[in-house]
Amino acid sequence: MAEPIETTEDQEAGAPRVAGGSWQGYLTGMVFAIILTLASFWVAGTDLVWGPGVPILLAVLAIAQMGVHLVFFLHISSAPDSLNNILALAFGVFVVALVVFGSMIIMANLNANMMSMPELMNMQR
């Protein structure tokens, strides 16, 4: 038995640190986040970017910033301790994508197939 039972108790001394971080790490994350945020606001207001491309660019910038926050602020990493967190995150992203894109596709479909309002009124008469 290499691992004593003490690790399950309230003992911080022997246990490995979970969410290590350094102020350099937070500063790096902060700088990246500021750049990406300003880029988002610039893209939304500029005419330099081709119009239909703006939403895609905004999505890319937002996802990049979420990644920056996850890595530098929430300390999601590929460390062994973090493996379960990453699996849960992957499932969370899957559910979020299903809910958001599923709803949008279904509602757009219903909208496209729906009879226009005046026609519907005529049928009820």
Binding site: A15, V18, A88
Partner: peptide
């Protein structure tokens, strides 16, 4: 390895 440290479990 036994149960994970409490830190890890709580964070998870």
């Amino acid at each position: 390895r036994g149960p994970a440290p409490r830190n890890v479990v709580v964070s998870f």
